[in-house]
């Protein structure tokens, strides 16, 4: 695995490299513009032909979105996670559909849940999990799910419930003390 990383470093600029929890798992951070070149090189020359997942992380403190492309090589039995950071205020990126056709669904999901758009993906604006969603994309960390849930779906008569529960608990403890 280290040989592979060295070979990659000789061609591309690797911002950060880190070994994962297993020997055959490494995490690389590359620059946003060179991602397609890196994925294409890994697919054609290093047998990483399987894109297992694209995932997204919201780093609200750094004002960035992280996109991770998880690759798997059947010949070498190795995992490689290639990650990039994109600007949170301008969540746009280019699709990898030309390299991996299965990216279509993953990108559609990320578009729906994080609002990151992928230029060149024809189906990304169709509904995936949510139907008729009109609010902010729900997996962004500044989206208040509790407030949204209580406003939209309501809550059981919480005051009544809480007082009842407190009464039941105090009755129980009183009885327990008396024994």
């Amino acid at each position: 695995m280290e040989d592979l990383i060295k070979r990659l470093e000789s061609i591309f600029k690797i911002v950060e490299k880190k070994r994962g929890k297993r020997d055959n798992l490494w995490i690389l951070e590359v620059e946003k513009d060179s991602l397609h070149a890196v994925l294409s090189y890994l697919k054609d020359n290093e047998s990483f032909r399987h894109l297992a997942l694209i995932s997204c992380v919201d780093w609200i403190e750094n004002n960035k979105f992280q996109l991770s492309y998880i690759l798997w090589s059947y010949q070498k039995r190795q995992n490689l996670i290639v990650k990039i950071f994109i600007d949170r205020d301008k969540p746009e990126f280019k699709t990898v559909l030309n390299l991996f056709p299965q990216a279509e669904i993953y990108e559609r999901e990320i578009r729906e849940l994080y609002g990151v758009t992928f230029e060149g993906n024809p189906t990304q604006f169709e509904d995936f999990v949510l139907e008729d969603w009109e609010e902010m994309p729900p997996m962004r960390r500044d989206f208040d799910t509790l407030k949204y849930s209580q406003e939209k779906y309501g809550d059981r008569d919480s005051e009544v419930l809480k007082t009842n529960i407190r009464k039941i608990i105090s009755d129980y403890t009183d009885e327990w003390r008396r024994k």
Partner: peptide
């Protein structure tokens, strides 16, 4: 179904089905 259970704060789970 009673009050949302462990998904009480989920953006996508109906809390009170009897409504």
């Amino acid at each position: 179904t009673v009050n949302g259970g462990m998904y009480y704060d989920s953006y996508n789970t109906v809390n009170l089905v009897d409504l």
